[in-house]
């Protein structure tokens, strides 16, 4: 077909902006509505179905039993364990990401910045499973980390840390500390990039104006830079937070026994076949993140947007 034949169509679309928008947006909106939101609501719908543990079958009878059972001691334990890890990982990622992002934005030459981008993204190009297994090797007692700590003469120190409650364990690979390290490693890029993008949007003359008006560097950071970058930190933390809440591989490979929300969903819908409870568990991260955003909003996270 020649371009000449397309011209009437092009002219019609140019004149009729609504038709153009309709054609442009319908496919992605259908995809988004059906594939994303539709399947999510279908899943949530099932969380109100009844599971008969005797016949191991699901019947479409309305019940709140699945949600009530989330508050059983064992299930609550799973939720709190996952939540605790997600919060720690998010805080650690933010603490590590901010200086890196700050350096990238304010000091790095364009060339250095390019290297940083590649450096931050490179780990994301490798398979997640490969990285997870690699960490089991790194953290094992014959692994490079133990070797390194041994050569620094810090083995005693490490053992003492591993004896601490909650974070400790027999070895790094079976401790919550090890699991925390792996999570922090995995999700760090998701924190660096949004913070970096937010920092880039802060004009440097705002920092100069603050300094000019008599603010010491610490005050400029607290009152100007951080409030303006806070939305970026929140964006990054939604990634690190929700990725930790939803993960079910790392908890299996590294760290002590004890299920995470992700494992619970996996087990319930897979081997047990209790789809309604799995669906109810899926609601937990959604609610937690909604609460988190509410708190962030109240703390003024989005005032600068």
């Amino acid at each position: 077909m020649s371009t000449l034949a397309l011209r009437p169509l092009a002219n019609t679309l140019y004149r009729n902006n609504n038709l153009f928008l309709f054609l442009l947006l319908t496919p992605p909106l259908l995809w988004f509505g059906v594939a994303y939101l539709g399947s999510l609501f279908a899943l949530l719908w099932q969380s109100f179905y009844t599971f008969d543990s005797f016949s191991m079958s699901v019947s479409p009878e309305f019940t709140l039993e699945n949600y009530r059972s989330l508050f059983d001691a064992t299930n609550l334990d799973i939720i709190l364990r996952t939540l605790g890890m997600a919060i720690s990982v998010t805080l650690a990622c933010a603490a590590i990401a901010f200086p890196i992002a700050y350096y990238m934005t304010r000091y790095a030459t364009p060339r250095e910045r390019g290297c940083f981008y590649v450096g931050v993204m490179l780990p994301m190009w490798a398979s997640y499973i490969v990285k997870a297994y690699a960490w089991t090797v790194i953290l094992s007692q014959q692994g490079i980390l133990y070797w390194f700590i041994n050569h620094l003469g810090l083995t005693n120190g490490l053992n003492q840390v591993l004896q601490l409650p909650i974070i400790g364990g027999n070895t790094l690979a079976t401790s919550n500390l090890g699991r925390f390290i792996v999570f922090t490693y995995l999700w760090l890029p998701f924190m660096i990039l949004p913070i970096q993008a937010a920092l880039e949007r802060v004009p440097s003359n705002l920092l100069q104006a603050s300094s000019d008006l008599g603010a010491r560097p610490g005050q400029t950071f607290r009152k100007i830079l951080f409030p303006l970058v806070f939305p970026g930190v929140i964006a990054g933390s939604i990634f690190t937070f929700s990725l930790t809440l939803g993960d079910y591989i790392i908890p299996q490979l590294i760290g002590p026994s004890g299920l995470y929300i992700g494992n619970m969903v996996y087990t319930m819908q897979g081997s047990v076949g209790n789809m309604p409870l799995a669906a109810a568990f899926t609601v937990v991260p959604i609610v937690l993140i909604a609460i988190y955003l509410k708190m962030a909003k109240r703390a003024g996270a989005f005032d600068a947007l």
Binding site: N205, A209, S211, D212, I224, P227, A304
Partner: peptide, 19 residues
């Protein structure tokens, strides 16, 4: 440093704090 000088600046593009 700037924050200890007895001078203040009106910036070209104002540099008002947006938040």
């Amino acid at each position: 440093p700037p924050y200890e000088r007895e001078v203040n600046t009106v910036f070209q593009d104002y540099a008002l704090f947006p938040h």
